[in-house]
């Protein structure tokens, strides 16, 4: 699904990612953990194609395509989804309209006809119910005056409606209370299948109690310093980043 080889990334001449390798296969859930400034979010932006990041070296292959050659929207329409750490507010644009526009952009890209209003309404209603989202909320402007928890639920709703092949969750747990965390995690778990993959970026082991990863990677100073299974997350919680990074 995704193969990152020897990736070097800098921003304004400052090196952030320094030789990162990561392979994610279909059906796998990977967790990427690391301290602040280790390059976690940079990786999510590089994968989704945000500009201003300079790729100094390395390759990223996604579904047998050279990911780095695709535009942001092409990557999205090829099934790569980023759940934002800080979802953007777009005043004057109703959330449901945004969702519909996103779905139809993808359908257009794939050469499919637009989803009609009724079909869309049904899909939105069923997905919103799964996530305990009141559909009234979807009539409001996108993310405007949403609470932190509402924004994150909204991201997961978008994800489940777009059903991506490769989803990156960038610190989705930050700012969530325990109930919201559970609902968001359940949403992710429902979406999980043999056909798609997840990269879950987080500071804390807490989220991984709900979304069980197949692999855990620890990133420090722009490199993956240790990989393992779920037990690595527990070990990390006990010992802290510093000790683990040192022992690596």
């Amino acid at each position: 699904m995704l193969e990152i080889k020897n990736l070097h990334v800098s921003i304004e001449e400052k090196k952030i990612i320094k030789g990162l390798n990561l392979t994610i296969n279909k059906g796998e859930v990977h967790a990427l953990m690391g301290p602040n400034g280790s390059g976690k979010s940079t990786l999510s932006y590089v994968l989704s194609g945000k500009d201003k990041y300079e790729i100094d070296n390395g390759t990223i292959e996604y579904n047998e395509k050279n990911l780095l050659e695709l535009d942001v929207d092409e990557r999205a329409n090829e099934g790569l989804f980023l759940a934002f750490q800080y979802p953007m507010e777009i005043p004057g644009v109703q959330t449901s309209f945004f969702l519909k526009t996103a779905i139809n952009s993808k359908r257009k890209y794939l050469g499919q006809s637009e989803m009609d209003a009724l079909e869309f309404a049904k899909l939105m209603k069923s997905k919103a119910e799964e996530l305990n989202i009141n559909t009234e909320m979807l009539k409001r402007d996108l993310n405007v005056n949403y609470s932190g928890g509402e924004k994150k639920k909204q991201e997961i709703l978008q994800m489940s409606m777009l059903s991506p092949k490769m989803a990156i969750l960038d610190e989705t747990d930050s700012g969530l209370d325990i109930d919201a965390l559970r609902i968001v995690s359940e949403g992710v778990n429902k979406l999980k299948s043999k056909e798609n993959s997840f990269l879950v970026i987080t500071h804390y082991q807490r989220l991984l109690n709900y979304i069980k990863p197949d692999f855990v990677h620890i990133i420090a100073d722009g490199r993956i310093v240790k990989s393992g299974d779920y037990s690595l997350a527990l070990e990390l919680e006990e010992k802290g980043y510093e000790e683990i990074s040192k022992s690596a």
Binding site: S48, G49, K50, D71, V72, D73, R75, A76, N77, F81, L82, F84, P87, M88, I90, F98, T101, A102, S105, K106, Y109, Q158, L162
Partner: peptide, 10 residues
């Protein structure tokens, strides 16, 4: 960027 990440062209 947010809109484009959701599949809208620029």
């Amino acid at each position: 960027f947010y809109c484009q990440q959701r599949g809208l062209n620029s």
